[in-house]
């Protein structure tokens, strides 16, 4: 294996390297990685906050997500319970152990069974937070960790995401910036998994006809919360 490593890298160096040494190439690489410069971004996302939120909602809706606006986190319990009832879904949700959701008064809807932790196949509905919303394409950035098991994003048929309005940024680059700034006790800002999710699961593999709910959720419902405690997302 290490033989292959040297063969590949050696071959590349032979073909790419500079006769006088590779200092200039090394400097170019170090600079690029240290600066991680932005490339051009779509102007449509570079708009003031109300339009940015409107763009997020429009793009997410276009991607077949549904978006519901709520005044605060306290309204989440009713919104979830009502959604399940209106869709004739079982009154049980699997939730992420996210501080953002800790403020949700689930007890006001006693008929709803609420459990916490990673998802299994028996969990028809999940409720999670979101690290960020990205306006340019109506995309959610979901970050793995103790507060957000990844299976919640993929196994349940219905995925409900609580997104504080203040977490909506313009572009992917803005979302990465937020993540880079996140303090992390482990030192590295890089999460194990970052899921960019745009609408529910779909496939076009049978005669290029788009169908929702291929392997992941058939339905993605975003609860856009106007005034939320963003402790979790800002972490």
């Amino acid at each position: 294996m290490s033989g292959s490593r040297e063969r590949i890298l050696g071959g590349l160096r032979r073909r790419l390297g500079q006769p006088g040494g590779d200092d200039a190439r090394r400097d170019a690489v170090e600079r690029r990685l240290a600066d991680h410069p932005r490339n051009p971004v779509p102007a449509r996302a570079l708009v003031p906050e109300p339009e940015r939120v409107a763009l997020f909602v429009a793009m997410a809706t276009e991607a077949a997500a549904t978006v519901e606006r709520l005044p605060d986190t306290a309204a989440v319990a009713d919104a979830v319970a009502d959604l399940l009832a209106s869709r004739n879904l079982p009154a049980a949700v699997r939730t992420a152990p996210d501080p953002l959701l800790a403020a949700v008064p689930w007890h006001t809807r006693p008929a709803l069974t609420v459990s916490r932790g990673p998802a299994g196949d028996d969990d028809p509905v999940s409720v999670t937070g979101a690290f960020a919303g990205i306006a340019e394409t109506g995309t959610l950035m979901l970050v793995s960790g103790p507060e957000h098991p990844t299976t919640l994003n993929f196994l349940p048929d219905t995925h409900i995401v609580v997104l504080p309005r203040r977490r909506i940024v313009a572009t992917y680059e803005d979302a990465w910036d937020l993540l880079r700034r996140r303090s992390d006790a482990g030192g590295s800002w890089i999460p194990r998994t970052v899921n960019l999710v745009t609408g529910p699961s779909r496939t076009g593999d049978i005669e290029q006809t788009i169908q929702l709910g291929a392997h992941g959720p058939r339905s993605l419902h975003i609860l856009l919360v106007e005034d939320a405690d963003t402790a979790s997302a800002a972490g």
Binding site: G145, P149, R192, L196, T198
Partner: peptide, 24 residues
């Protein structure tokens, strides 16, 4: 590729499950 604005799932992975991770 498909003419979508963005695919449904774009996933960035770095390493195995971390100590406190509940899945992965």
């Amino acid at each position: 590729a498909t003419g979508q604005e963005f695919s449904a799932y774009t996933t960035f992975s770095a390493g195995p499950r971390r100590a406190a991770d509940p899945d992965g």
